[in-house]
Amino acid sequence: MPHAVEIDTATPPPALKVERLAFAYPDGHQALYGVDLQVAAGERVAVLGPNGAGKTTLVLHLNGVLSGQGVVEVAGLPVVKPNLREIRRRVGIVFQDPDDQLFMPTVREDVAFGPANFGVRGSDLDARVARALADVGMAEHADRSPMHLSGGQRRRIALATVLACDPEILVLDEPSANLEPRARRELAEVLLTLGRTMLMVTHDLPYALQLCPRSVLIDDGVIVADGPTRELLADEELLAAHRLELPFGFRLG
């Protein structure tokens, strides 16, 4: 890239830059074959793809839990070992099962866990927790046990635990899985009001359409399509070739 230096000084770096990322699991299974992806600050991008396409493997590279060949940068900071602490603050991953994420006795402690690990203390910490809970509409549940909340509420708390770290990019793994329709809609409303850069891994194509203007389709460890979500979902042949389909009765009008 001959003009890289010029561009870097003129515009802020992309929220996420992935270049030629390849990864094989220790058992030899090659999960990623050179993935290229750029996400600009403020963008909401859906990552679509069938089971086993490499979506979760990609997500785990974003905060350095897995490391393959290639380049991953978060807001200009490369994902390498000395940067891991800052990288994990910048990349907020909301995992698929909120029960994996919530383990403290009260909602408040769980939301405080992340920022406390990143060195936030005292009244700053309280303010962070209060703000994150208010952002997801759960402020009044701060002192309850996550166990006593509904699935949709737990999912929103899981989101708050990550928001409290004030990430540069929010990564959501199957956010709508196991949610009743109403909780699914409420979560979408919360996500749309956050105004954050977002990468959403999902099978739920209508959800991708509702939340993300842009989608990338990943299959067999490479990105096979990248474009406006509506165009991608309208391409029936493309979807069929990668074992994706719109739900019964759903039409793009």
């Binding site: 785990l60 905060n63 839990v65 602490r85 994990r88 603050r89 990349v91 907020g92 991953i93 995992f95 099962d97 994996d100 994420q101 383990f103 405080a112 866990f113 992340g114 406390a116 690990n117 990143f118 910490l125 635990t161 990550v162 770290c165």
Partner: peptide, 22 residues
């Protein structure tokens, strides 16, 4: 496997081995 996922979620939130002490 479940423990592994819980651990992953903790590491992703910056856990390095000590519980936050308030």
């Amino acid at each position: 496997e479940r423990g592994e996922r819980v651990h992953l979620a903790m590491v992703s939130r910056g856990w390095v081995g000590a519980m936050p002490d308030h």
